[in-house]
Design a protein around this nucleic acid. Structure first.
Lengths: 207, 207
DNA sequence: CCCTGTGAACCAATTCACAGCT
DNA sequence: AGCTGTGAATTGGTTCACAGGG
């Protein structure tokens, strides 16, 4: 085993997919799998899956493959998903609303535990039992609860400012739904979700 | 100029970001930009932007940089965004609902023009003027309207089957929000949006 | 002097292919 | 025989650095 000092980010980015596939196998009560099977499920080569996993340890058995529960355990450990992460959501528009109501976070390591908006009509209302709070209280609330992850679903014009406020309050990971690239200190992790970017990528290949 | 026969997908994937940055500059009435300025906005090296753009032609002027309107025009042409693309949305849950109500598609090349669901409670209702149709009519409606792009916001258990139905009806690009990898003919473009995958990527780096 | 476009150099990622264990 | 883990080979992507035009 050759545990590398620093794992390429592109490898880290594939681990959640591996975990997803494994959890689906587990739901079907599959006990053992192989790099070949995982690769077929995910459209990735078996060699790549083996190489990726080997960066973190020797998780498989020659001749047999990988134990599904064991590999899930290892990946949850590597990705720090052994306990749920609290998430602060900022911007309770249609999208923020839909995210709060989404039921799929809890069994995959996350819990949307705070929501903020600046609209007096929304502040104080309850969505799925979560009370929308005044965005003015956001820094204090995030700091006191030590929340490290935020989802940003505010209009583009406010995203950079709100992101900076989040970072000041102690957030170090932001999932940004606003259609712009944020400029933040490099210790802050940022991921982007923009359906139009994804669609425009595909239109290149159409017709 | 060395127009390559085949452009790497990773380059194509960056073009929408360039377009996004340029459109923001245009809103501020900026007439001219440089690879340096674009790179600063997007967190990408200037050399990479120049190399990417040079794959498609010589769009800049030495000493001056790039004309913002001209480069927008070229990118819209390359990405086939000169006319709006109709999109069929399948699965009108909270997320589908939020997508239909989202106002940002029209000025970036897309129009959600059909929505389907299998819930009798939802079929016939109107969201932002769009009538939710019975999913049983989906293949016929998509075929007749020649819709090529679909957004898939159904529960994971149905996603693979619905995706296959979409492809049979003529869809060749799918933006999949269901948390699994689809298995489809390779002429079909698929992009994935799964916030939990994005979050799990970031948690690796936390603490 | 400013900035593009681009070979060349460098660095990164993927695939190959096989030793070695079950 | 089946499958992992891994060096070596290969392929792909990014950065460098500079010629050349404005």
């Amino acid at each position: 085993m050759n545990r590398k000092l620093i794992i390429p980010d592109i490898v880290v980015g594939r681990l959640p997919r591996y975990l997803q596939a494994l959890q689906r196998l587990q739901k079907r009560a599959v006990q053992t799998t192989s790099s070949k099977e995982l690769g077929d499920i995910l459209g990735i080569s078996a060699a790549q899956i083996r190489k990726d996993l080997s960066q973190f340890g020797e998780f498989g058995k020659q001749g047999t493959g990988y134990s599904v529960p064991f590999l899930i355990d290892r990946l949850e450990d590597i990705l720090k998903l052994k306990h749920d992460w609290d998430i602060a959501l900022v911007g309770v528009g249609d999208l923020g609303h839909a995210i709060i109501r989404y039921q799929g976070f809890s069994n995959r390591g996350f819990c949307v535990s705070m929501a903020f908006d600046n609209d007096p009509e929304k502040i104080g209302t309850s969505i799925n039992g979560l009370i929308v709070e005044n965005i003015q209280n956001m820094p204090a609330r995030i700091q006191e609860a030590q929340v490290k992850i935020a989802m940003l679903t505010v209009p583009a014009a406010f995203a950079q400012q709100v992101a900076e406020d989040l970072v000041k309050a102690g957030v170090t990971a932001i999932l940004n739904y606003a259609p712009l690239v944020l400029s933040l200190p490099k210790h802050v992790q940022v991921e982007y979700i923009d359906p139009i970017i994804s669609l425009q990528h595909m239109t290149y290949y159409l017709e």
